[in-house]
Amino acid sequence: MTKARFAKRFYVSLFATLLAGTASAADTVVFQLDWLPGGDKAPIYVCIDKGFCAEEGIEIKVEPGRGSTEAITRLAAGTSDVGSADIGALMAAQVTERVAVTGIMSIFNKGPHAFFALKDSGISKIEDVKGKKVATSPFTSSNVFLPLVLADKGLAESDITLTKADPGALGPMLMTGATDVIIAWMTNVSIFNGQAAQAGKELEIMPWYAAGLDLYSASLLASDKFITERPDVAKRFVKAFKKSLEYVKTNPDESAVSVNKIVPELPVDVVKGAIKDTMVLEFNEVTDKDGLGVFETARLAETWKRVAASQKLDPSALDPEKSVNRSFLAE
Rank of each mutant, 00 (worst) to 15 (best):
T2L: 09
T2G: 15
T2R: 10
K3V: 09
A4M: 10
F6C: 08
F10M: 10
S13F: 14
L14M: 12
A16G: 08
L18Q: 03
A23L: 12
A26Y: 11
D27W: 13
V29Q: 09
W35M: 11
L36P: 05
G38Q: 06
A42R: 00
F52Q: 05
I58S: 03
K61R: 13
V62Y: 11
E63W: 05
P64V: 05
S68C: 13
T69M: 14
E70T: 11
E70I: 12
R74F: 06
G78F: 01
T79C: 09
D81V: 01
A85D: 06
D86Y: 13
M91H: 04
A93H: 04
E97L: 10
E97W: 01
V99N: 02
A100V: 00
G103V: 02
I104M: 12
F108C: 05
K110M: 14
K110H: 14
K110Q: 14
H113V: 05
F115N: 02
A117W: 12
K119S: 11
D120W: 10
D120N: 13
S121D: 07
G122A: 12
S124N: 14
E127N: 15
V134R: 00
A135S: 14
A135W: 01
P138T: 09
P138V: 08
S141V: 10
S141R: 08
V144F: 07
F145P: 04
F145L: 05
L146E: 08
L146N: 07
P147N: 12
V149Q: 09
V149N: 11
K153Y: 04
K153R: 08
K153P: 00
G154N: 03
G154P: 04
G154K: 06
L155K: 03
S158A: 15
S158C: 05
S158T: 13
S158K: 13
I160P: 14
G168W: 03
M175K: 10
G177K: 09
A178G: 15
D180P: 04
I182E: 01
W185G: 14
M186S: 15
S190P: 05
A199Q: 10
G200I: 03
E204T: 10
M206V: 01
A210R: 09
A211R: 09
A211I: 01
D214A: 13
Y216P: 09
S219V: 05
L220I: 09
A222L: 01
S223K: 02
S223R: 04
D224A: 13
D224T: 09
R230W: 01
D232V: 07
A234S: 04
A234F: 00
K235W: 04
K239W: 00
A240S: 11
F241I: 01
K243S: 15
L245A: 13
Y247E: 06
V248L: 12
T250M: 03
E254W: 10
K261V: 07
V263T: 10
E265M: 06
E265S: 15
L266P: 08
L266F: 11
D269S: 14
V270T: 11
G273K: 06
A274W: 11
N284T: 07
E285W: 00
D288Q: 09
L292D: 02
F295H: 00
F295S: 00
T297D: 15
T297A: 15
A298M: 07
A298V: 08
A301L: 08
A301M: 08
A301Y: 04
T303N: 02
R306H: 15
V307K: 05
A308P: 08
A309T: 05
K312N: 14
S316Y: 06
A317R: 02
L318Y: 11
P320V: 02
E321K: 13
F328L: 12
A330V: 03
E331S: 15
